[in-house]
């Protein structure tokens, strides 16, 4: 009788049932024990939760204070200024609203470049991630002994922030879209390799065995036996990554890798007088992100629903 109470200690409803059965069988002494041990458990649980909460609150408050202290402007002084910059930009953009369409047309090529960087790095990263994931999945790997090697390699690829590779490559290759593309592709390969291999682990191995019995090579087994099973999930993850990569490619532009982010930095450096350009870029970036988010989430829903049927 004691064990179920102990394991379900967190749920008051259960306790009522257990105590009642205990009373009915007439073991009155046990009821007291059970109640006592239950209350002790609840007390301990509360203590632990309380302590965790306390630590969390202390971390948050002291973290906020440290961040506030090390920031150039304080939180409370800055709070009422948040609206200043957007309203300045908006006011100027509104004043020159007649120019907005032409400015949007002017920055459209930069937008195309940003999207191209994202698309190319997603394609390259997905292919590399696919290979890495198949080589790093138990049961599918071509060289089972090297699985840890490929896994650690994709872990490292995933851990490197894009900006690190982008900045180093800009130094060697000069500014432009290629450094950003390589940087994002490397990170994408690592990130997708992990998600892909989680899916591939659950793939049915029967088709693979069947193909192996016909003498198919490893590549053929993967292409014909595994890929058709995992394709919907892979496409879905790749699309999600594409959304993320559009944002990443805009950010990398800001540190000198071309595209919309680069134009934004230039427009910002000009300050007042060029706020209409900044506004046009904001509009383009916002529109693009929302558009691709919506489009890809719609398509992803269709993919996963199709799978459920």
């Amino acid at each position: 009788m004691t064990t179920p109470v102990a394991s379900d200690a967190g749920r008051p409803v259960f306790l009522c049932g257990e105590t009642m059965t205990a009373t009915n069988t007439g073991r009155a002494l046990n009821v007291g024990d059970i109640r006592e041990s239950y209350l002790a458990q609840v007390g301990r649980r509360r203590l632990y939760s309380g302590l965790a909460l306390l630590i969390f609150v202390v971390l948050m408050v002291s973290g906020f204070n440290v961040a506030d202290e090390r920031n150039a402007g304080g939180f409370w002084e800055g709070l009422h200024q948040i609206g200043d910059y957007p309203s300045e930009v908006l006011a100027e953009a509104w004043e020159k609203r007649a120019d907005l369409p032409s400015l949007i047309a002017k920055f459209f090529p930069a937008l195309v470049e940003t999207i191209n960087i994202a698309a190319m790095s997603t394609i390259i990263g997905a292919v590399a991630g696919l290979i890495l994931s198949l080589l790093g999945t138990r049961g599918l790997a071509k060289w089972p002994l090297l699985i840890p090697l490929f896994r650690r390699f994709s872990d490292i690829l995933r851990a490197i922030p894009e900006i690190v590779i982008a900045l180093v490559l800009i130094f060697v290759l000069g500014g432009g879209p290629v450094p950003a593309m390589i940087a994002i592709a490397l990170h994408t390969a690592g990130a997708l390799a992990k998600m892909f291999s989680e899916v591939a682990e659950n793939a049915d191995l029967k088709p693979v065995e069947g193909l192996a019995s016909t003498g198919a090579t490893w590549t053929q087994r993967m292409l014909l036996g595994v890929l058709p099973q995992v394709a919907p999930n892979y496409v879905s993850y790749t699309l999600l990554r594409f959304e993320i990569n559009i944002r990443a490619s805009a950010i990398l532009g800001f540190v000198g890798a071309g595209g919309l982010g680069y134009e934004l930095r230039n427009a910002m450096a000009w300050g007042p007088g060029r706020f209409d350009e900044a506004a046009a870029i904001f509009v383009l970036l916002f529109g693009t992100i929302v558009f691709f988010d919506q489009a890809s989430s719609r398509y992803r829903n269709r993919l996963t629903e199709g799978q459920a049927q």
Binding site: D68, A72, G74, G78, Y85, F286, D293
Partner: peptide, 28 residues
Amino acid sequence: FDFVRGVDALIWTVVLARAFGPGPLTGA
């Protein structure tokens, strides 16, 4: 939700840096 997600972290950073200046608080 859609709006704050759509206005990317890049733009938020730029806007917030104007109000709070550079530093960890702005990034947070």
